[in-house]
Design a protein around this nucleic acid. Structure first.
Length: 479
RNA sequence: GGCCCCUUGGUCAAGCGGUUAAGACACCACCCUUUCACGGUGGUAUCAUGGGUUCGAGUCCCGUAGGGGUCACCA
């Protein structure tokens, strides 16, 4: 076999959903793993379903996520054009060839006649009515402008078998396959035809796509065989589910790649996670960059059964990426989200960001984690009670003035200096430092739990604000 | 409904005839700790079901149930 060539062939119907992106990713990984090429082809033969702008979304998503193609409409290549609507003449030419070879035939049946073919369950199955038209009849009808389609001629007997690298041997009886339309009456090909022609002409060696094509693949093979072309290797992928019953889809309002990016997921984590959905590496390592994925990817790890999308796990992965990010990278990603916080601009940006770096899994959690810094308003003084830390309301009343006094004398208002100072104060007072720090933190935040400890927060608030807040809390306690 | 395919904890999953049935997320507990988080340790929890085959079955075969896909001039 020559160079491995895989392709991703989405239709521009509005967005690139998670399942589609995973299909693209596997095609990309398999090609890269084998030193091959990954091709993007736009399947826009259904003009009615075309959605403006969706081709651009496909380009953007693939670029942004790193699942980048070597050949495609906007990057070129030697097998173009890569947009099916620009290949119409090619399909017409090959359709004629297939008719000559007996693999297809002209059909002039009206929709009305087709409708009479409905069985009890409402399923229509074409009866090969036009297969037996004579050459003269066909020529005459075409000449006189009778609308027609070109149908595939499926053998009436026999079984179509092939080997799928994920699902193994698949066999479908030809009697269960209908003579599907290859060329529509508007002259455009259907997926069933364009897909085969393009995959062959573009030198695609491995066809990677969803399981929805598992049982229709034998009819594609019939065409490869009729043309005398080598069949590609098939790799069908199980679907990604929203729950046990439903596929993940935008139609159900499920998030897409761009939605997750907007929600503040680390991009690498999204790709990493979807790679793991339906595929498992030989090792137990789960956090993998795109290049790690290329290195570790193998077809044997692809599962046959559908997998349910678990946003919680993706969130965890995102958090792992954030924790390992160097600060500057983190800052550049986090800043747009920090700006949505009410505390942005009121305090030192770097200090705020440092507070939050190990405490968020996705960037959008930043504002909520920092909101407590906003202002101090009336709160339940019972928050001072903490049995484990030996803190109580009365102790708070007693030591808060001393804390205030100590802090007002402090010139170096940094975390470490504050910590040292307060610890020594607790020793002087003969109380647990935990109790003193607990009371301090409650006094300056009024919150049971906060991102950051007492002295970290005090540093961010600054001396003036810290002392004001302690005074406010003291006042509250003495009410 | 016909046909094709699938079925290991709540979720992702390893396993390819002999294992105490990995690991991860989630959950719980404990430790660490300046609350929370991080980190560490431990724990709860899985082979859909009934028959075979075999000395031995999550692994092989058949049935049943459940689920997915497909049966378009959509891809």
């Amino acid at each position: 076999m020559g160079t491995v060539r895989t392709r991703f062939a989405p239709s521009p119907t509005g967005y690139l959903h998670i399942g589609g992106l995973r299909t693209a990713l596997y095609g990309y990984l398999f090609a890269k793993k084998n030193g091959g090429k990954f091709v993007l082809r736009i399947e826009d033969t259904d003009t009615a379903r075309y959605v403006e702008g969706s081709v651009q979304i496909i380009y953007d998503t693939m670029r942004d996520s790193g699942v980048m193609y070597d050949e495609g409409p906007d990057v070129g290549g030697n097998y173009g054009p890569y947009i099916q609507s620009e290949r119409k003449d090619i399909y017409t030419e090959y359709a004629k060839k297939l008719v000559e070879k007996g693999g297809a035939y002209y059909c002039f049946c009206t929709p009305e006649r087709i409708a009479t073919l409905k069985d009890e369950e409402g399923n229509v199955r074409y009866d090969k009515h036009c297969l037996h038209l004579s050459k003269e009849e066909i020529e005459e009808k075409i000449k006189s402008g009778v609308p027609y389609v070109i149908r595939q001629n499926i053998p009436e007997k026999g079984v179509g078998s092939y080997h799928d690298l994920v699902y193994g041997d698949i066999s479908v009886d030809y009697k269960d396959i209908e003579d599907g339309i290859l060329i529509k009456s508007d002259g455009m090909p259907t997926y069933n035809f364009a897909n085969v022609i393009d995959d062959h002409l573009m030198g695609i060696t491995h066809v990677i796509r969803g399981t929805e094509y598992l049982s229709s693949t034998p009819k594609y093979n019939l065409m490869y065989d009729a043309f005398g072309w080598e069949r590609p290797v098939y790799i069908h992928l199980p679907p990604i589910m929203k729950d046990a019953q439903h596929k993940l889809s935008k139609r159900n309002g499920d998030a897409s790649y761009e939605d997750f990016v907007k929600k503040g997921y680390v991009k690498e984590a999204i790709i990493n996670y979807i790679a793991l959905l339906g595929w498992s590496p030989k090792s137990n390592v789960e956090k993998m960059s795109l290049s790690d994925l290329i290195e570790n990817f193998s077809l044997e790890g692809i599962s046959k059964s559908p997998s349910i999308f678990d946003e919680t796990k993706m969130k965890w992965l995102s958090g792992e990426y954030i924790k390992e990010m160097d600060y500057d990278t983190f800052k550049s990603h986090a800043l747009p989200f920090l700006k949505q916080s009410e505390v942005f601009g009121k305090f030192d940006t770097d200090k705020l960001l440092n507070l939050v770096k190990t405490r968020v899994q996705i960037f959008s959690e930043i504002p909520e984690k920092l909101d407590y810094l906003k202002s101090l308003s009336e709160y339940d003084v019972n928050l001072f009670v903490n049995e484990k830390q030996k803190a109580s309301v009365s102790l708070a009343k007693e030591i808060l003035p001393k804390i205030s006094e100590k802090l007002s004398a402090l010139s170096d208002f940094t975390n470490s200096a504050l910590f040292e100072s307060l610890v020594s104060l607790s020793a002087d007072l003969g109380i647990k430092k935990q109790a003193l720090l607990w009371i301090t933190r409650i006094a300056i935040t009024g919150k049971e739990s906060t991102a950051g400890g007492a002295t970290e927060i005090a540093e961010i608030l600054g001396k003036e604000e810290t002392l004001e807040r302690i005074a406010f809390s003291l006042n509250l306690l003495n009410k």
